[in-house]
């Protein structure tokens, strides 16, 4: 993506919202980014997009969220958006068993098209519709544990756990990134120690020096 890195945030994290049609992905997004819930929302065609900036461990993080169409026919279009995504919110509807059973298919989609280190949170949405519940919360927990995912039940309508779901994903991503950065720093520090065989660095340095000589 061609977004510029401006100074309003420290990190920009791309997140994808996936899951079956009608589970409430678009409302989760509008709740999180605009604090709006729309009972009369239309189906998402292709992909839609929204952002929100928030604080994670004292850093300003901009979440760039791509909301995808749930229908299978759109996979060819939407899977292109998995590229570069560092997080995914995989949503099912607790009142529709089928949408929970399809979670495995969505995980496969991610494995096929997304980065292998992508942070995945599973959300059982519409938790306000208790009387229509078709998927028990324990089932959600069990699946999440088996697949190594974070898990929350959410309600976009009531705003329950929406904030927390994104906050959790973003925090986890941030921790992974900062650990990697730390590891890279350590690697860089150790590589300057003589005797480590850093021939490439030496070659680079000498190349630069010679150019410098010529130009001055």
């Amino acid at each position: 993506m061609g977004h510029r890195v401006d100074h309003e945030y420290d990190y920009l994290f791309k997140i994808v919202l996936i899951g079956d049609s009608g589970v409430g992905k678009s409302n989760i997004l509008s709740m999180f980014t605009r604090n709006e819930f729309c009972l009369e929302s239309k189906s998402t065609i292709g992909v839609e997009f929204a952002t929100r900036t928030l604080q994670v461990d004292g850093k300003t993080v901009k979440a760039q969220i791509w909301d995808t169409a749930g229908q299978e026919r759109y996979r060819a279009i939407t899977s292109a958006y998995y590229r570069g995504a560092v997080g995914a919110l995989l949503v099912y509807d607790i009142t529709k068993r089928q949408t929970f059973d399809n979670v495995q298919r969505w995980l496969r989609e991610l494995r096929d098209h997304a980065d292998s280190n992508i942070v995945i949170m599973m959300a059982g949405n519409k938790s306000d519709l208790k009387h229509l519940r078709a998927v028990q919360e324990e089932d959600g927990h069990a699946l999440a544990e088996k697949e190594g995912l974070s898990f929350l039940e959410t309600s976009a309508l009531e705003g329950t756990n929406i904030e927390k779901a994104f906050q959790t994903i973003l925090t986890e991503i941030y921790h992974i990134i900062s650990k990697k950065a730390l590891a890279a720093q350590e690697a860089a520090a150790t590589s300057t120690v003589p005797g480590q065989g850093t021939t490439i660095n030496v070659a680079d340095a000498s190349g630069n020096t010679s150019k410098g000589c010529c130009s001055t």
Partner: peptide, 21 residues
Amino acid sequence: EEQGLEFLQFAFRWFNCLLIR
């Protein structure tokens, strides 16, 4: 182009729903 915007990111829906949306 400079902003990295792809036409597919917005025009897909236009063609898919013939601008009804």
